[in-house]
Amino acid sequence: MSTSGLPSAYQVSAASPDWLNKGDNAWQMISATLVGLQSVPGLVILYGSIVKKKWAVNSAFMALYAFSAVVICWVTWAYKMSFGEKLLPFWGKAGPALGQKFLIKQAALPASAHYYDNGNLETSMITPLYPMASMVWFQCVFAAIAVILLAGSLLGRMNIRAWMAFVPLWLTFSYTVGAFSLWGGGFLFHWGVMDYSGGYVIHLSSGVAGFTAAYWVSSLFHHIGNLMFASN
Rank of each mutant, 00 (worst) to 15 (best):
P7A: 06
Y10L: 15
Q11I: 13
A14L: 07
A14Q: 04
A15W: 03
K22M: 06
K22Y: 06
G23E: 00
Q28V: 14
A32T: 08
A32D: 05
L37P: 10
Q38Y: 05
S39A: 14
P41E: 00
G42A: 04
V44D: 04
Y47W: 11
W55E: 09
V57N: 01
V57E: 07
V57K: 01
F61S: 09
A63Y: 01
F67Q: 08
V71A: 13
I72N: 15
I72Y: 15
A78K: 06
K80H: 09
G84H: 00
K86I: 14
F90V: 09
F90Y: 15
K93V: 15
G95Q: 01
G95K: 11
P96Q: 11
A97T: 01
K105Y: 04
S112M: 11
G119F: 02
N120L: 13
M125D: 01
T127Y: 04
P128F: 12
Y130A: 02
S134R: 05
S134G: 06
W137Y: 11
Q139D: 03
C140M: 14
A143G: 02
V147C: 05
L149F: 04
A151I: 04
A151E: 00
L155Y: 06
G156K: 01
R157E: 12
M158P: 01
M158T: 14
I160F: 06
A162Q: 15
W163D: 03
Y175S: 00
T176C: 07
A179I: 06
F180K: 03
S181L: 02
F187Y: 14
F187W: 10
L188M: 10
Y196P: 07
S197G: 08
V201R: 08
L204T: 07
S206Q: 13
G207C: 01
Y215H: 08
S219D: 08
L220T: 09
H222Q: 13
I224K: 10
N232Q: 14
N232F: 15
